[in-house]
Design a binder for these strands. Sequence first.
DNA 1: TCTGATTTTGAGTATACATGCAAAATTGGC
DNA 2: GCCAATTTTGCATGTATACTCAAAATCAGA
Lengths: 186, 186
Amino acid sequence: MARYQAGIKTRERILDAVRTLLGEVGLDSVTVKGICDQAEIKSGSFYNLFDSKEQAVLTVVREAITGIDPDPLHEGKDTIGELVSAYIAFVEDTPEIAKTYVQIVAASSVNDETIRHRVLAHHRARVDRFAEALARAQNSVSGTEIHARAEMLVAALNGLAFMWLLEDDFDFGGHATRLLGDIVPA
Amino acid sequence: MARYQAGIKTRERILDAVRTLLGEVGLDSVTVKGICDQAEIKSGSFYNLFDSKEQAVLTVVREAITGIDPDPLHEGKDTIGELVSAYIAFVEDTPEIAKTYVQIVAASSVNDETIRHRVLAHHRARVDRFAEALARAQNSVSGTEIHARAEMLVAALNGLAFMWLLEDDFDFGGHATRLLGDIVPA
DNA sequence: TCTGATTTTGAGTATACATGCAAAATTGGC
DNA sequence: GCCAATTTTGCATGTATACTCAAAATCAGA
């Protein structure tokens, strides 16, 4: 345990503030002043704990990219239903982070090669996991066919997340579950 | 015909510059200086033709929102294949505007109520058109079922557009066509 | 070529932002 | 309660940005 606790707590307050603001005002509208107001600190404290605004935002952004695929070590064990449930849980339980994820893909990916590659790598790994789970569920279909279906399923889930961004009361979980039923008949 | 042409041409150069920059650097990174450099004019000229940066950007944004559904008066006549083809053409023929559309949905929708409602209204109208076309193709299925399928189809198309943002060589047209084949067997 | 209308220029202003820093306040072991 | 380490404060600084404006340049009809 560190000798002084205050700084650690302030760091958490800052990250909480960034999470909130990313969901509220969007990736490019987050300011240091906004973060400090939300965290109820002064800017000097912010720079005592982070080298730059970028660093604090990137910390949360990494969280968002990783959050969509929380446990990549389970490979070969998940069912397709569990994978879809994990996506639904991600969107419904941590909506600010999910919103951030969508914004990262749409906005940052355009002008930030580093983030784009990171997102792309995670996306491909996710499609592979979906494909493997699909293969286990329907082992009669060919590999390329399975992979195309997985890509489509993930695309549709992302599209539904997209819609959920637009409509506050959009039933993301319901639509995602329905979609799963269409792809993998019970 | 107006007496002086120079101003009109400059206006077009500015809008072209905004279109280019929206695709290249993203919605929130477009600056007046950037627009002026790209259009090879000075900032004074910009403000001679537009009241604000916002106005110029919004002009192109409206174009993007409308562009995804170019001919809403054809209702009752389009086939589902034509609607999907129109989406593919939108993405492949005007990629900068398509990119802008995705960014608007993801970023602006978070903090701009006006744009969000505009996008949402267009989206709903589009889903309705897809549903009507689907109903004509498969009139055995119930109305709510058809509507759910239309929503899913549009979501999947948006999701694919999403992916195409990440990967330069993503075969959007191929995947979209495949998706259509899955939903409406030939 | 002259003239008034239109367009362009480019320096200038105000503001918001990220970041720096020295001093004050707080913390916690002794 | 003392003191050194840590943390917070809040003002200062430099920079980028949106936007203004008066003067210069250009245009097109007579």
